[in-house]
Simulated assay, not measured.
Amino acid sequence: MRQNIKTYPAQQLAYVQTNIQNYCGSEGDKMGFSSNYIEGKGTFPHGVHPPERKRFSEDSAIEVMPPPKQVTLPLLQNIGAPSKSVVKPKQTIACNDLLAEAGGFVSSNLHAPISGKVQKNVNVTLPNGRHVSAISVKADGDQISGQALFDDVLGGEWPTTDLEKYDSKTITDAVQKAGIVGLGGAAFPTHVKLIPNPNKPVDTLIINGCECEPYLTPDYRLMIEAPDAIISGALLAAQAAGAKSIYIGIEKTSPKQLLCLKKRHRELESP
């Protein structure tokens, strides 16, 4: 794996191409990593490198699942403090309404994924065996679904210029209010990561667009179908954290998304 890295100011985007080289020639054989930019031998010959097999899904557009008839939402969904419910049983709520507010600094707001009525409070068991309170909502009334839901989340106009008018607190407050969390397993609240630390300044923001898992291509499809949201989000995150440079990591085996992001970024920069 060889990295070619270029650095640009935060108003632009730098694209890090991750070049994957199979040293043994056949898919699934031993693979290694090498880099001209890292001290040492620059190779990692060990580890598991299964066949990627992205071809099964990389050309399939994102599909929006139909809205469920009922949802149960644990009040603890990250490694921080549980959220605190702000709704009552029998209360009618609309999609995106606030159901629970953050219970601490490392916590997150919880919003309704469907419209409906709040049911009786319930307890659920998490995969780690912990018992926690949960909010149950039964669907009722019209639901946003299909392309309308996709457009509501990822469509519309995304700011990419004049971001200087948004200070760090404005951006991090908006992220916290929206309940945005990471999707790496810990569901770590994103606003915590973006708040700048004067003692440990951040100079570079890295957006990880590499998907190492076999078969999975959601990031690949998002970069193709919703590049505006990714570009705008990267610029706003850099503005909040004080980063001067942005890198987007993309596998060289996926050149289509690289071209798509570059093309769209040029279009957004054009007057």
Rank of each mutant, 00 (worst) to 15 (best):
Q70A: 03
S35I: 07
T72D: 05
K54S: 05
P66W: 08
A61P: 12
T18Y: 09
Y15Q: 03
K30E: 13
H49N: 11
H46P: 04
P66F: 05
K54Q: 07
N36Y: 07
Q70G: 00
T43I: 13
M65R: 14
M65E: 12
Q12A: 13
R55S: 15
Q70H: 04
G40W: 03
L13E: 01
R55F: 15
Q17R: 13
Y23M: 13
S60K: 15
S26L: 11
G28Y: 00
K41V: 12
S34P: 04
T43N: 10
H46Y: 13
T72W: 05
K54E: 00
F33M: 15
A61Y: 11
F56E: 05
D59L: 14
S35D: 08
K30W: 09
V16D: 04
R53S: 04
P51A: 06
F44Q: 10
V16P: 02
E27R: 02
P45T: 09
F56N: 03
Q12W: 09
K69Q: 06
I20N: 06
N36C: 02
A10L: 12
A10M: 11
P68G: 02
K69T: 04
G47H: 08
E52M: 04
K41N: 11
P66G: 00
H46T: 11
T72F: 04
S26F: 10
S34K: 08
D29S: 15
N22K: 08
A10S: 15
G28R: 00
D59Q: 14
K30Q: 15
S60I: 15
S57P: 01
C24V: 12
E27L: 03
E63T: 15
K69N: 08
P50D: 02
K54A: 04
T43V: 14
G42V: 10
F44A: 09
E63V: 15
P51F: 01
Q12M: 12
T72N: 05
P45R: 03
E52A: 03
Y37V: 09
K41Y: 13
S35F: 06
G28F: 00
P45M: 03
V71Y: 02
P51Y: 01
Q11C: 09
V48L: 13
V71P: 05
Q11S: 13
N36W: 07
T18V: 14
S60F: 12
F56T: 05
S26E: 14
A61N: 14
P50Y: 00
N19A: 10
V48N: 06
A14Q: 02
G32R: 02
H49T: 09
E52L: 06
K30G: 14
H49M: 07
P51H: 01
E27N: 01
Y23I: 15
L13D: 01
P68L: 01
A14F: 08
R53F: 03
L13P: 02
A10N: 02
P51W: 00
E39H: 06
N36T: 12
D29E: 10
I20W: 12
N36E: 15
S60T: 15
M65C: 12
A61V: 10
P50R: 06
